[in-house]
Each structure stands twice: as structure tokens, then as C-alpha cells.
């Protein structure tokens, strides 16, 4: 039980009267890479946004690395220090240079000296192959470059868990590959990753488990191999048929 880094039990969430998440149970082991997929509106983004408390929920419990997620500023802060998130629309801070985007959290949250923070930032920028852009502003970069910066920014917190919320769906087709390459490279680190994505090739390659969601609930959970070859539920069969037909 204790090797679960994320434990979600009986999670229910409503937007007004709309039941978005229904009885979600999900355990993620340390170092595991989970891909969450499903049709749009199925609640997959909402689910991972609950994990770092960007969304509140009404019923159930989420425990992240032994910290129960409750309405307590200190606990939310503690969880956010361990969980990093990469967004669909990058959400870089446009008024700061790339370097300042990366050093913001280390200097203000971890109170790291400026010099050390800069070194750390350059290390991760190098890792995502974008060190030469450090002094530019986000709007001067292409979408793929911005998303790689966003990944580097979340790495700067040295998070135990990384959440990816459709990181490639706002990108031009030519730029998807460069971001996926970085993510595949990251997957080798042994860090826990939860990715909401439609990139089935990526899922096949790196996922330990694939979760299929529809209409607010988990419909099927399978190994990548069986997920594509022997899907069990009819809903998943239909989904795969539709996305693989072209």
C-alpha cells in the first residue's frame, strides 16, 4: 500500500448539477507512467487537475505521497511542491524571460539563491534542448519551444510527480514530435508521470498502464499491449476504431 504515490478513492465531482467525475478509484505506484485517454468531455483533464488542487472535489479522497488533499492551505502548498503540471496552452508567463520563467518558483518558493537557481534553470533548458533561447520572451518562441520551456519550468521544482494535461494538442503537427521526444526522454528518469494525451504512439511506447475514461468514469484500465490488441469493453473498442480508422 505504501508504494502508492497517488491514491484516489471514490472521487466524485460536480460542476453545479453536472456530475463530471463518478466514483473514480485509481492508485499510481511510485515511478509509474500512466496515460489517461478518452473522448473530450470525459473528465480526464478534470481528474488530473484534482490531483494538484486546481479543481476542488465534493466527495472521496486523494492522498499524494502520504499527504491527504484537504482544504488546508499548508497541505495544498506541500502537495504543489511535489506535483508539477504541464498545460495544454503552456501558460508561460509572457512578461518574464524564459530564464526568469524557470527561476521564479525556485527563488520564491524554495528560496534558492539567484545564482544557483540560474544554474538549475540552465541545466533543464539544456535538457530540453533550448538553452540558447534563455533570454528571449515566450512570445518569441514557437509553440513546440514554448511547451519544452514549460516542461523545463516544471522540472525546476524537482517534482516527484509530473502531470501532463494534453501537452501536444495545441501544437502544430510539425512540433508535436519535439515535445514527445522530450517526454519520452523524461520517462526514463523513473519519475511518476500522469499524462492526459491523445498521442497513442506515445502511450504505446512509454506507458505502464493506460486508463480509458468516458462520461466521467474509468471504463477500462489495461497494459499498453492489451489496450490496443485486446480491448475488453465495447466503449473502448468503438473509441479505438474511431481514432485508428484514418
Amino acid at each position: 500500500m505504501s508504494d502508492n504515490i497517488i491514491e484516489i478513492k471514490k472521487l466524485n465531482k460536480w460542476y453545479g448539477d453536472f456530475h463530471v467525475l463518478k466514483d473514480i478509484n485509481l492508485n499510481v505506484k511510485k515511478g509509474e507512467i500512466i496515460v489517461v485517454c478518452g473522448p473530450s468531455g470525459s473528465g480526464k483533464s478534470t481528474l488530473i487537475r484534482c490531483i494538484n488542487r486546481l479543481e476542488e472535489f465534493q466527495e472521496g479522497s486523494i492522498v499524494v505521497d502520504g499527504i491527504e488533499l484537504v482544504d488546508d492551505v499548508k497541505k495544498i502548498k506541500a502537495i504543489r511542491e511535489e506535483v508539477a503540471m504541464v498545460f495544454q496552452h503552456f501558460n508561460l508567463f509572457p512578461h518574464l524571460t524564459i530564464l526568469d520563467n524557470l527561476t521564479l518558483a525556485p527563488t520564491w518558493v524554495k528560496k534558492m539563491p539567484k545564482k544557483q537557481a540560474n544554474e538549475l534553470a540552465m541545466k533543464y533548458l539544456t535538457r530540453v534542448n533550448i538553452a540558447e533561447q534563455a533570454n528571449k520572451y515566450p512570445n518569441q518562441l514557437s509553440g513546440g519551444q514554448q511547451q519544452r520551456v514549460a516542461i523545463a519550468r516544471s522540472l525546476c521544482k524537482s517534482p516527484k510527480i509530473m502531470l501532463f494535461d494534453e501537452p501536444t494538442s495545441a501544437l502544430d503537427p510539425e512540433m508535436v514530435a519535439e515535445v514527445l521526444d522530450v517526454m519520452i526522454e523524461l520517462a526514463k528518469d523513473g519519475r511518476t508521470m500522469v499524462c492526459v494525451t491523445h498521442e497513442m504512439g506515445f502511450a504505446k511506447k512509454v506507458a505502464d498502464r493506460i486508463i480509458f475514461m468516458d462520461a466521467g468514469q474509468i471504463v477500462e484500465e489495461n497494459t499498453p499491449e492489451n489496450f490496443f490488441k485486446n480491448p475488453e469493453s465495447d466503449r473502448l473498442k468503438l473509441f479505438l476504431e474511431q481514432i485508428l480508422s484514418h
Binding site: R80, M85, N91, F93, A105
Partner: peptide, 8 residues
């Protein structure tokens, strides 16, 4: 959300 997510 990004500011929240990085822990500010």
C-alpha cells in the same frame, strides 16, 4: 493556474 501549479 500556472502560478498555482508551480507553488506560489
Amino acid at each position: 493556474e500556472a502560478a498555482d501549479a508551480i507553488g506560489l
